[in-house]
């Protein structure tokens, strides 16, 4: 683990600690809690996409597995949320292995379609298996999480907890990247043939990372269920999986901090737009919320057109060129643009 990552995590912790006082309104904490869930999933997805070069448009399915495991086991069987979450993680990991073994042989668009197909199947099952999942009517009455009898019943507590999980997840991910396994993974992304000739066991490593990213997604799903206290198949559809990929790509594929940046940006963008619309109406411009979709798409397009390596690298680079800041770019992504 590099010193820069330590500094980054340190600063992130300080910002998280100060955030509730900074924003001064529980509503923004609520938005940031959802942001944390997305950050967690995107960290896992970035490990998979950025470091092994495997695309997955199916991570919504793993989120669903986590969320439904938590919801079903706590409401119908009365298990403790932590055991349920553990079961969700286990189930997601097993699913990842089962799906991963045949899927990870595929490449490019075929892999994309296979993961997309898997996500749709999970979504269809969550809609159709009414007896288990509650179908489109969903499951309500999910209990809150408790830590040593300390209920997560306010937005501030939930905020600290979910971002705490993100920091731990981030720490583990960054550690992994700079370990021997991580270097092997980057070699896979560079060239599978070269990596395997150097003794990297590609097939096993890919599955391992898929399992890890599935676990991240599953935990974020469980946290979602225990925060919203109601789930239905809606939030876990294919479009959410596509959105997650978009977050990672917008932030920058080859850097875990990029994934976090992308997740934060795209999670907060709708709120900024609603703020913008209120502002415009406030100064007397007739603005309809219908335009939000247009603006959202345009911002996404502009980022992809003008910041080729993603928002994170792009911003770092432009800041660097402005201030003459001399430092090495994080990761080795700039050399590895494909």
């Amino acid at each position: 683990m590099k010193i820069k990552d330590y500094i980054g995590i340190g600063i992130l912790i300080i910002v998280i600690a100060a955030m509730p006082d900074l924003v001064g309104n529980d509503y923004y904490l609520g938005v940031l809690i959802f942001t944390a869930f997305n950050c967690l999933t995107c960290t896992g997805l970035c490990l998979l996409m950025g470091y092994t070069g495997q695309i997955s448009i199916g991570h919504g399915a793993f989120i669903a597995i986590g969320a439904y495991s938590s919801a079903i086991l706590t409401t119908k069987l009365g298990w403790s949320p932590w055991t349920a979450m553990g079961c969700g993680v286990l189930l997601a990991a097993i699913t990842a292995v089962i799906v991963g073994i045949p899927t990870m042989r595929l490449k490019g668009h075929y892999l994309a379609m296979a993961t997309l197909g898997f996500a749709s199947i999970v979504h269809i099952v969550s809609v159709a298996a009414v007896d288990v999942t509650g179908g489109p009517s969903g499951i309500s009455g999910i209990p809150r999480l408790q830590i040593f009898g300390f209920a997560l019943n306010s937005d501030t507590r939930n905020f600290y907890f979910s971002w705490g999980v993100v920091v731990v997840g981030l720490y583990l991910a960054v550690n992994l990247i700079h370990s021997r396994v991580g270097r092997g993974l980057q070699a896979i992304h560079g060239s599978e043939d070269a990596a395997s000739s150097l003794g990297v066991n590609i097939a096993v490593d890919k599955i391992k990372i898929l399992v890890l990213s599935a676990i991240y997604a599953s935990i974020s799903g469980s946290l979602y269920a225990h925060y919203v206290l109601y789930i239905d198949p809606g939030p876990f559809d294919i479009m959410h999986s596509v959105l997650l990929v978009t977050m990672v790509a917008v932030g920058g594929l080859h850097n875990i901090w990029g994934a976090i940046t992308g997740a934060v940006l795209l999670s907060l963008l709708p709120e900024f737009l609603s703020f913008l619309s209120e502002y415009l109406q406030g100064i007397g411009i007739r603005y309809q919320t219908d335009y939000d979709t247009l603006i959202y798409g345009s911002i996404l397009l502009l980022i992809m057109l003008f910041l080729p390596e993603g928002l994170f690298e792009g911003l770092s680079r432009s800041l660097k060129s402005i201030s003459g800041f001399r430092g090495k770019l994080a990761g080795r992504s700039s050399e590895r643009a494909d």
Binding site: I7, G8, I11, L12, L22, L315, L329
Partner: peptide, 11 residues
């Protein structure tokens, strides 16, 4: 780089 993202968050 992380500083930048953190700066962004603070902003």
């Amino acid at each position: 780089m992380k500083k930048r993202s953190v700066f962004l968050l603070a902003a």
